[in-house]
Design a protein around this nucleic acid. Structure first.
Lengths: 182, 182
DNA sequence: TGCTAAACGGAGATGGTCTCCGTATCGTGG
DNA sequence: CCACGATACGGAGACCATCTCCGTTTAGCA
């Protein structure tokens, strides 16, 4: 990749991160281009679909996921505390920008999504948490990581759409946790 | 209202119901107008916002909600069966068209939504189910109807976005139910 | 039947998405 | 060091959906 192309690419990603956080996932891409000081053509050449841009943005997000997972697994406490802790971390991770929870949760099952690999990192993280609790015999039969992703993703989506404060989200996560624990 | 206006109004609602079911809530309104044989101006005069059209469509839906609630309350069986039965009915009710679950669930907490009153009927229905189970002492402390709407709405939203079959939704509803029951 | 308020409907403004292609730039091989 | 071909740029504009404005038509009453 040519040096100028590299510069533009990086700049677009950086600006897009800002814009998406400010205005949500539906923000006009032309604004991203404008703020990045490039033409729309340049933006669309690098990122033919909106999701491709999202994918690039999420590179650093993946690192945060890994880090957060390690923290959640290292946590002391009852299985309930660990599970709810993970739920809250999960919610925070997918709620970095408006529209994120719905986007990420539905990409989870879509083999054609450009952000699929990123979501699988998150699914893998849930798997690790589920595995650990399962070894302790803390979970009911049939509970799996995909269910965690869907249920917590659903709660986060509702919270995102309705603008719920964390205090209202917590009890919902508790219900889900209690439904999974023995 | 003049007779011709009434005719157009009814025809638009009827067509919109079809179109929304076919193409989801985001279907172009101009197509609704075209199929209804009116100009876009006519459509927008009757229904200034997309949600106003939705509101009109939901008139008959409200009847279905009441009917379904009665059926759910009359149902014999364990509290778990009743609760899960209601969850499934609830999911079906809000999933009549693509985008419905998210729309209805987020309208639930928005005082300015044109479909608020419709959603309150649904919230009221959940309230009746919760009240009944609560009297039997079947629910954990702190569980309320709003939580039911949010959690089941979240599950339905995820299912809608990801196109999940009923068989995959059921276990999610079971987890939620188990988290609410004693 | 004639009149007026009401309703119609379509042309077009607006705003977002995305493409095409002439222009500018990079960076390499001579 | 420079010339040239490959690469990238960027903006004009096509396209599509939303929504409005206003000249035209019509219902329905007196």
């Amino acid at each position: 990749m040519r040096a100028d192309a590299r510069r533009n690419y990086d700049r677009i990603v950086e600006v897009a991160r800002e814009v998406f956080r400010e205005k949500g996932y539906d923000a006009p891409l032309d604004e991203v281009a404008r703020r990045a000081g490039v033409g729309p053509g340049t933006l669309y050449r690098h990122f033919p679909r909106r999701d491709d841009l999202l994918d690039a943005i999420m590179q650093s997000w993946v690192d945060r996921v890994r880090e957060t997972t390690d923290k959640a697994l290292a946590r002391e406490g009852s299985p309930r505390e660990v599970l709810i802790g993970w739920f809250e971390a999960y919610t925070a991770l997918i709620s970095s920008y408006k529209g994120g929870p719905a986007k990420i949760t539905s990409a989870m099952g879509d083999p054609h999504s450009p952000i699929l690999t990123k979501c699988q990192v998150l699914a893998g993280a849930s798997q690790r948490v589920v595995d650990r609790l399962d070894q302790e015999g803390a979970l009911r039969d049939g509970v799996d990581a995909l269910q965690v992703c869907r249920l917590v993703g659903g709660v986060a989506t509702v919270a995102d759409n309705a603008g719920l404060p964390a205090a209202d989200v917590r009890p919902l996560l508790e219900v889900v946790a209690d439904g999974m624990l023995r």
